[in-house]
Amino acid sequence: MANQKLKRWLKVAGQLIIAVLAIRFVVKEIDLNELKTTLLSANFWWLILALAAFLASKFLSAFRLNFFFRALGLKLNDWFNLKLYLLGMLYNQFLPGGIGGDGYKVYLLNKWYGTPLKQLIGATLLDRVSGVVALGFLACGLAIFGHTATALGAFSFILWLGLIFAFPAYYLLVHLLFKRFKSVSHTTNLQALGVQGLQVISAFLILKSLGVENANIDYLTLFLITSVAATLPISLPGGIGVRELVMVKGAGYLLIDQTSATALATLFFIISLFSALGGLPFLRLSQPKD
């Protein structure tokens, strides 16, 4: 037990160090006054629409997760599942590692319904994996039409490989390790594309709020890449620091404005943080009476 706690704190310390170093690099690379002016000049109404698109993505994501649970024979009411999902968002956003909410959901469902921990962990893990696959697929698709293909030069074929093999590789993974979820794979993959598509729309609306009119495809491609980076276990909740670092470095390669790219990452984080507060009313969530 003591060793587990030590490992957990060492992991948090490592994530914090990475976040601090990443933020320090970003601060050196951009003009903070320009970033402040850009953020404060963002159009409020476009941001409201961006928030609405993000919330819609989260509602669809909760609905998708319930398909994985149903594959386990766990039939949760959609409204109760949404409340549980929002509570998980709250924990994920504010607990180090970004997996606290997933762990808490697994704990509650195992406690209330007796569903084996291994199966619940498999469902939440595959839910995350399917989301990352959808992110990579959309990123490759957008990148082909933007400056990314030019920046990659002779390696641009990687984008086509990503498009062609992303979902076949996912289906192979399900067939080999997650056979119980084969029946819901097609549905959940379409939903994953819908979830990430809504988040791309949210990012596009943020760009509109910032008055960005050119190279939207490149900004959105970079946004998807940073979303993948934010899921890595090296980052703090929300990908703080890592998301901004990837934005700044990527903007240099794609020849887009670093300040606008950083502002996009910052505003998206604020929207996700605000949305996570929707879990506050459900801190004392109890098992529904059937």
Rank of each mutant, 00 (worst) to 15 (best):
L222W: 13
A166G: 01
A166C: 06
A230C: 03
S209Y: 10
G241S: 00
V195D: 01
E244N: 05
V174A: 11
G241P: 00
S185Q: 03
I164E: 01
G197H: 11
T150A: 14
K179W: 08
K208C: 09
H186M: 13
V195L: 04
Y170I: 04
P233T: 06
G162I: 01
L198I: 07
D218E: 06
G211I: 07
K208M: 14
T150P: 04
F178Q: 06
W160Q: 12
S202V: 01
V200Y: 10
S235R: 09
G241I: 04
I234E: 07
L220F: 10
T187N: 04
G194P: 02
L152P: 00
K208F: 12
V228M: 09
A154T: 05
I240G: 00
S227M: 14
V228Q: 03
P237W: 06
L224T: 11
P168R: 10
G162D: 03
H147Y: 15
N189E: 11
L193M: 04
I240N: 03
T221W: 12
Y171H: 09
L205K: 09
A166Y: 09
M247R: 08
R180F: 04
L177W: 15
H147Q: 14
L176V: 10
L232Q: 08
F155M: 10
V242N: 08
G153S: 05
L224C: 10
F155Y: 14
K182W: 03
V195N: 00
L190F: 15
S202W: 10
K182Y: 06
L210P: 01
G239W: 11
G239R: 12
M247S: 13
L193V: 06
E244R: 11
F165V: 04
R243F: 04
H186I: 14
I225R: 09
I158N: 08
T188A: 03
R180D: 07
T231S: 14
S185P: 01
N216R: 15
A192W: 06
V242T: 05
S209G: 13
L245A: 12
W160R: 10
K182N: 06
L220S: 08
Q191K: 08
L152Y: 08
Q199F: 11
Y219C: 01
L177M: 13
I206N: 04
H186N: 10
Q199D: 02
L207E: 09
I201C: 01
I240F: 11
I225G: 08
G239K: 13
E244K: 08
L198E: 00
G162V: 03
E244G: 00
I206D: 02
Y170A: 03
L236V: 07
L198N: 02
V184W: 05
L222Q: 12
M247T: 06
L163E: 03
T150E: 15
